[in-house]
């Protein structure tokens, strides 16, 4: 373009206007890039600080509850096992029946009805013979055993010297959780109602487990002997 085509006034203003326009463009780009960077870094810092707070709270809480958690988790796992607790319940009920001087004349097992909270249920029907007070005792004691068991039905025939009873009990189980939450997920201690429930579980009668202590292998010195 021939400069002489433009008037002198325009030619004089062209350079300052050009510089100013270039600077304005630079400011706009700089502002956009700079602001975006600042916003991103600030968000990253806020997230890192939030995670730091969560991790610190978690560390304090876990250190504080560490001594007692093993007993509490065992208690909760026995009260609501991860697998069908049928054998444990049968053993518990038989122990109660024997302790109350009752004779177990029959036993029937069935699957429980649908239960909430992704849990399974097992139904047990027991035919018992004994005195009325002993049956009442059994019914009240069944509620206090672990795994968690409830009396679902009761049929009593009080004709004759001994009371014949058919007691239906229902016990529950639920698979153990398989996934842990992320490390930066916040956790909280047991609340008041959970503590209360745990206290109730603590008084349940636990099944009698037999634990065998493993022994070290012993060398057989006389391999072909008797």
């Amino acid at each position: 373009m021939n400069k002489d085509l433009l008037p002198l006034g325009v030619r004089v203003l062209l350079a300052p206007f050009g510089f100013l326009a270039a600077l304005v463009l630079m400011i706009i780009i700089g502002l956009r890039v700079g602001l975006a960077q600042v916003i991103q870094y600030r968000a990253d810092l806020a997230l890192a600080k939030k995670n730091e707070t969560i991790l610190k709270v978690k560390q304090d809480l876990l250190t504080q509850i560490q001594p007692g958690i093993s007993r509490q988790s065992s208690l909760a796992a026995v009260a609501l096992p991860g697998e069908n607790p049928l054998l444990l319940v049968v053993s518990q009920v038989k122990t109660i029946a024997a302790a109350n001087g009752m004779v177990l004349t029959g036993l029937k097992v069935g699957l429980g009805q649908e239960t909430p909270a992704q849990a399974g249920g097992v139904e047990l029907s027991l035919n018992l013979s004994g005195s009325l007070p002993s049956i009442v005792n059994l019914v009240s004691q069944v509620k206090k055993i672990a795994p968690l068991t409830r009396v679902s039905s009761l049929d009593l025939s009080l004709v004759g010297p001994l009371t014949q009873a058919t007691v239906g009990v229902r016990s529950y189980w639920a698979p153990f959780p398989t996934k842990m939450p992320a490390m930066t997920e916040p956790i909280s201690d047991l609340n008041e109602s959970e503590q209360k429930l745990l206290g109730e579980l603590a008084v349940l009668t636990l099944p009698g487990f037999v634990s065998l202590t493993p022994t070290a292998p012993v060398e057989n010195l006389n391999q072909f002997g008797e």
Binding site: I69, R170, P177, S193
Partner: peptide, 30 residues
């Protein structure tokens, strides 16, 4: 402290399920 965290998570899971189960069955206590 992973074992302690697992323990706490297990306790909370069991208690929530127990609450749901006993809440329903105790209402129907015959």
């Amino acid at each position: 402290l992973a074992e302690t965290e697992q323990g706490l998570f297990l306790v909370k899971d069991r208690l929530a399920k127990i609450k749901a189960l006993t809440g329903q069955s105790d209402k129907q206590d015959p």
